[in-house]
Design a protein around this nucleic acid. Sequence first.
DNA 1: ATCCCGAGGG
DNA 2: CCCTCTGGAT
Length: 215
Amino acid sequence: MAAAQASAFIRALAQANPEPKPELEYRDAFTLLVAVVLSAQTTDVAVNKATATLFEAAPDAAAMARLGPEGIAPHIRRIGLWQAKAKNVAALAEQLLARHGGEVPREREALEALPGVGRKTANVVLNVAFGENAMAVDTHIFRLGNRTGLAPGDTPRAVEDALVKRCPPELLRDAHHWLILHGRYVCKARRPECWHCVAREFCNYPDKVAGPTSG
DNA sequence: ATCCCGAGGG
DNA sequence: CCCTCTGGAT
């Protein structure tokens, strides 16, 4: 897909969603970071429920560190991998205090050095919370990038690089939400619903699904 | 059965 | 590259 077509693809999503409602509701760096750390192999809805009570008990790194794994666990028992995540989040809060004055660092290296934080989580925080030139690639965006031709690549990193290169810079931040929501609800893994896709005319997917009964 | 906004370790 | 950690929705 040419660069111009990639821009048109993303602009079509933008026009359809002037005020995108993110699945994970947080834009503040600390709450977003914790929410994303909790989100592996779990639905966004479950994470939002868990974090609602968790952040009431511990709205910042200091409070979260005080809570500790045993204090965190009861809030997140309904989500997958909660035992490891309770430890990670507690350790994460402690390191934020010990090494970053209780704030979330803005540097990729510092972010990825935190327990439970890999490249994907770091990219979400860099992009969504800090507005940096980064793009997180999850399973949805990976699939969408390849299927549509928007950002092809055989590794998440390759898809990431293609997206950062092709997305208009001023749209990069919100594109994260647009793409992930589009991947979840329209360009789905099993039955992509091409018949009401707003970017259909810019998509290279060869077998565009015609209607609900054809998939 | 299969999937979900992964990271860490072998 | 592979595996494991884990629960809930569909």
